[in-house]
Structure formats: structure tokens, C-alpha cells
């Protein structure tokens, strides 16, 4: 049992570290123009919508109503969080104002949603080593575009590449933390899973429509925003279908 727990922890830690790879494409990006900023926001919006689609589809296997209930809570919590932050002068490292608020919100959502993914990894170990390896690999690979979505918000605000990778990994740290208890108490955690997946999806969808899309529309033509968002959404679906 102790050896198995060690594997669960190591596997889920691997999924968390994979999130840092999402920062890599931004290694070649020094300065970001207004158009580039809109593109990054559209990209993040599409990736988050695609991720929400997968979370809802996954959650509906356990219970659609529970997933959507979790989604409603996620959305409302995000709205409350935004209202709370709106009245304050937010600072994130060197970054201040609306950019800092957006970074805090996206990090909060991504970190919260990692709790559900950690539970998914832990629960999947109950189905045997082969299933667990597959699920872990799938979650590790799909964490990469999530890191990309985080970096797409952080990097244009002036965050360093290391900071992008570091915060991306940080957002996934709840995965190893949740995977072990979920593995040990599968029957307790499994019923919570659809609520958690829905919660993450609801918060992400709200983030897209509350922050990312309106900001992108202010900086670029709506047809460019629409095209990049749709293509990023499709890419996320492709990624999660085949990997």
C-alpha cells in the first residue's frame, strides 16, 4: 500500500510539472503589441472554453445535474471574487490594476480546478495501474495547454518566462495533494467529482465572458477574436480527444 501511495503521488506530481511546459511557446516572445495581447486573450478564452467542454463531458459521466450545479457555484464564486477585487488596488509582483486582477482570477480558477483533476487521478488508481497510467498521461498532456492559457495572460503583462512556468506548475500543485487522499478514500471522493469538475468549468466559462473576451474585443476586430477563440477551442478539443 505504501508503495502504491508513492506511485500515486509521483504520477500526479508529474501531471503538475507538465503544466510548466505550457510556458515554453512564450520563450520566443519579448514584447507584446496590443494586437498580440488580444490574440493571447482570444487564445486563452478558446483554450478555457475547450477545457470547460471536456470537464462538463467528463462530469456528465458521473452526473450531469451535479456537474451543472457545481458549474453554477463556480460561476457565482468567480463573480463574487471579481466584485471583491474590483474595489481594491491589486498588485501582482510588478503588475498592477486590471491586469493583476485578471492574473489573480485565472490563477485562482486554475488552482481550484486542479483539486478536481487530482481527485480524478486518485480515483482512477482504484481501477488498476494501467488505467491510472493512461489517465495520468492524459491529464499531464492536457495540463500543457492549461499552462499555455495561464502564460497567455501572464506573459503579455510582463511576467518572466520562469514566472509563467512557475505559476503554471503552482496552479497544478493541488493535483498531487488531492490524488493521495482520493486514492485512499475512493468511495468518499467519487461522488464529489462531478461537482468539482462542474465548478471548474463554470468558473472558467465566467472568466471567459467576464474578462477575456470583452478585453480582447476592445483591442482587436471581433472577427479576429472570434476566429482565434474558435480555433483554440477546436485545438483543445482535438488535443483532449487524441491525447
Amino acid at each position: 500500500m505504501t508503495a502504491e501511495i508513492k506511485w500515486v503521488f509521483l504520477y500526479s506530481l508529474l501531471t503538475a510539472l507538465a503544466t510548466g511546459l505550457g510556458a515554453l511557446p512564450f520563450a520566443f516572445l519579448r514584447q507584446v503589441s496590443t494586437r498580440g495581447l488580444a490574440l493571447a486573450e482570444s487564445l486563452a478564452a478558446g483554450l478555457m472554453l475547450g477545457a470547460s467542454f471536456s470537464l462538463i463531458a467528463e462530469g456528465s459521466h458521473y452526473g450531469l445535474t451535479q456537474t451543472l450545479t457545481g458549474g453554477a457555484f463556480g460561476g457565482l464564486l468567480l463573480l463574487a471574487g471579481k466584485r471583491l477585487l474590483d474595489g481594491h488596488d491589486i498588485q501582482f509582483g510588478e503588475i498592477r490594476g486590471a491586469g493583476a486582477r485578471r492574473i489573480l482570477l485565472i490563477l485562482a480558477i486554475m488552482t481550484l480546478h486542479s483539486f478536481s483533476e487530482g481527485i480524478a487521478v486518485g480515483v482512477s488508481f482504484g481501477g488498476g495501474q494501467k488505467l491510472a497510467t493512461l489517465i495520468t498521461l492524459a491529464i499531464a498532456v492536457h495540463n500543457i495547454p492549461e499552462g499555455l492559457a495561464i502564460s497567455a495572460v501572464l506573459r503579455p503583462q510582463g511576467a518572466s518566462l520562469l514566472a509563467c512556468a512557475g505559476w503554471s506548475i503552482f496552479s497544478s500543485l493541488p493535483q498531487p495533494l488531492m490524488a493521495v487522499p482520493a486514492f485512499l478514500f475512493v468511495e468518499t471522493f467519487q461522488p464529489v467529482l462531478p461537482y468539482g469538475l462542474g465548478f471548474a468549468a463554470g468558473a472558467m466559462v465566467l472568466m471567459v465572458f467576464l474578462e477575456l473576451l470583452p478585453e480582447a474585443y476592445e483591442k482587436a476586430d471581433s472577427e479576429n477574436v472570434a476566429l482565434w477563440t474558435t480555433l483554440a477551442l477546436v485545438a483543445m478539443v482535438l488535443f483532449q480527444t487524441y491525447l
Partner: peptide, 16 residues
């Protein structure tokens, strides 16, 4: 794909 594109290019910008 067309529906997503049209929604994001015609509907949401107008709503905002």
C-alpha cells in the same frame, strides 16, 4: 465551428 464563430463575431460583441 460556424456557430461558434458567428456567436463570437456577431452576438457577444453586440451584447457587450
Amino acid at each position: 465551428g460556424a456557430l461558434f464563430f458567428l456567436t463570437l463575431t456577431d452576438l457577444t460583441p453586440f451584447a457587450y
